[in-house]
Design a protein around this nucleic acid. Structure first.
Lengths: 226, 226, 226, 226
DNA sequence: AATGAATGAGCGTTCATTCAT
DNA sequence: GATGAATGAACGCTCATTCAT
């Protein structure tokens, strides 16, 4: 798992401010919006969306309560923006990585590695993504659906491509397999975040998940060599 | 998938009143506690735990607001009791069924069938189990963990047994596989509940999931090289 | 100015509870809605609608804050209901009285007597009606218009009738005269409420206003030259 | 009704900049204080004092929010200054005009003409004067009283003078008549502003009001019997 | 002087829970 | 047991005001 992500930086690497903006950001004490989002991740993860108070997020971000409303429409919008922001970064990374991989096997393995790998060291984010968005059926249905569908499309596309070139069994439904992989990873992340969350736990689990899923969906007569 | 469940009755089958009590229940308006729980399933599923009002549950159950507090300590307790009640029934069914199955393969297949099969026709319950319990990190951590662990123990026990008699590959971590299966089913149920939720969708998905998972974890003549 | 009104009772006389309801009202400590409205009159009069806090009204009414919302939709609705309630009672009294008067002269005099007479001893109500409703252009436009129009219709009807039987000069616009009389009374009440508000001030002013207005609009042998 | 006022200019006529200052004002963007007051008239008229936001006034005036506070102590002070400013201009005009009129009859007629005539074409100002000042009982009591008393003094002075030279009936209370005239005009303006506000409506109403009031208070050969 | 981002006190409203009947 | 009117603590959000630039 090369160098694309790290504990803190992955999400932000591609967003580094242009030189001419850095001075201003430094002046006003850093990008307020990002500071609020980072604070929200922590607070939402600890107490859940509904039990989190706007004032707690503000305090954690080191801003006044009212400042939140200069950057977000309301409390819902904070969660929504958080999901949107993080998911779009994840999707960018996934798409870029997919284009670099030669075949379906390595693509599936890479997606699994990336998705679990980047959560490792970001337990808070894992909780927000796996637990918090589900807190509002409304948010999940109205908003989450879009990015979530993009994710499923990406994954099922990889599997369908694999079927076309014979890597993947033809009797597998790409859509079901994609939903299944997402669920498996989500479940792994959930149990990890709720449990002891030992640092290296996720990468080891990722390898297992990849192995099992690939064994499950690959054409078996002609095993794909690694 | 025999006859263990049906659209309405599975969860309640074991609770059917003995004839001599029916008259009394009818007199006092039916089993209030159960009526409240059934109403809660509907309301929680439609609006989520936090957005659901105690008064809405009361109305849906046809009782007064205050009556809820004669049967439950507070609103949290309604969700907690709901999960406890339904999960313990599910676990009972699963344990009974497991004891009737001859080998790990059929046991895994049966667990998957049952878990998704039960939900089919009970979309409300699917939403409560997959979405609602996650609404309170506190509830999930404090309470859900217990029953949830029982579920994982059951599933990983089946897999470990399968390893002992050679059915299942030795290099599979029963715990990770169990978490993965749970997650996969949860993800399938979630996307099903959030989407069009076509009646027959879940059983077909169940067959696929079983197939893929079993292909993934079973001992095979040509193991997938790493 | 006979006996139709008195310091406290005018508005409520026609609303006295049927015997069978009295017990219940006594039980629950009096009609909450009416208690809230009476408290609102006092608070609104002292501080104005916008500067009045819902909690102040609740405290003055001796109920909890939330209780207000069992009887009114929101704060606006308290003002609106107050105006609706008091105005409809005033209109009832006016209509009844009008039907008892023989001619336009005595009707106009009576309306003036009643309108100012009933405010006497109810300074708070005078302030609410003359000052508070104007605090929200929106309320005044949307809501107040209806009852207010009824009032103007009643008054201009009296004047138009007077014109038909020759009591009132034909060159007077009933509508303008009605608006003028309302304004004159409103102005008298306003300056009275804002000033020392000496108890007997209003009845004396009422007599003057009636005299001047009647001299102004009545048919006279020697019309005022232009 | 000669040429004292026009649609836009009356209030500001006496304030026209001396030529040598125009350049400077143009340089700094115009008289900010006046620009803010003019913007406030519009905003207050449209939404009422309490529902108007300081930021809205600033936007309408084309200045930054903070700039308001360089010219006014606070939001209250904007309303207060507006009323003070406009009322003192109105009083100046009235006093000047009064000194030009030969008798009480023409003075009363002139005051009525001016007060309503001025507002015609300035519906916004009419709403502010008749509706907005009443929005704050505190403002009206503390502040409005002063200028308002000046107005009543002027009007009752005219009537008292009329009594001294026999033009006006001796049994009329100058104070009550003044309050009544003010009220009548205020009522006319209010109903005009709230209604369709047809341009010519006010001057016609003014003529009627003058006629009725004068008939009502003037000495007549055949006094109206009671 | 002018700006407008930031502040934080303050309030309307909701709703879980209680308890007199 | 059952009711539902009443409670009041709690919180999201607004917006007048400030002040660093």
């Amino acid at each position: 798992m090369a160098t694309v992500h790290n504990g803190e930086g992955l999400w932000y690497r591609r967003n580094v401010a242009e030189p001419r903006f850095i001075e201003k950001r430094a002046r006003n004490g850093g990008d307020k919006r990002e500071r609020i989002l980072r604070a929200a991740v922590k607070v939402f993860a600890r107490k859940g969306f509904f039990a989190s108070r706007v004032s707690e997020i503000a305090k954690a971000a080191g801003v006044a309560d009212g400042t939140i409303y200069l950057y977000f429409k309301n409390k819902d919008d904070v969660l929504t923006s958080l999901f949107e922001d993080r998911m779009s970064r994840l999707l960018d990374v996934l798409r870029t990585e997919m284009s670099r991989m030669p075949d379906a096997t390595s693509r599936v393995r890479r997606m699994i590695e990336l998705q679990l790998g980047l959560l490792e060291g970001q337990r808070d984010l894992a909780e927000v993504v796996t637990v918090n968005l589900r807190q509002s059926t409304r948010l999940l249905k109205q908003y989450g659906a879009r990015r979530f569908t993009e994710y499923l499309d990406l994954m099922s596309g990889v599997i369908a491509d694999g079927q076309r070139n014979g890597e993947v069994r033809a009797d597998v439904s790409p859509r079901v397999a994609a939903r299944m992989i997402f669920g498996a990873l989500d479940g792994i992340a959930l149990t990890w975040a709720l449990g002891n969350a030992e640092p290296s736990g996720l990468s080891r689990a990722a390898a297992q998940v990849a192995e099992i899923m690939l064994s499950g969906i690959r054409q078996s007569a002609v095993p794909v060599p690694d």
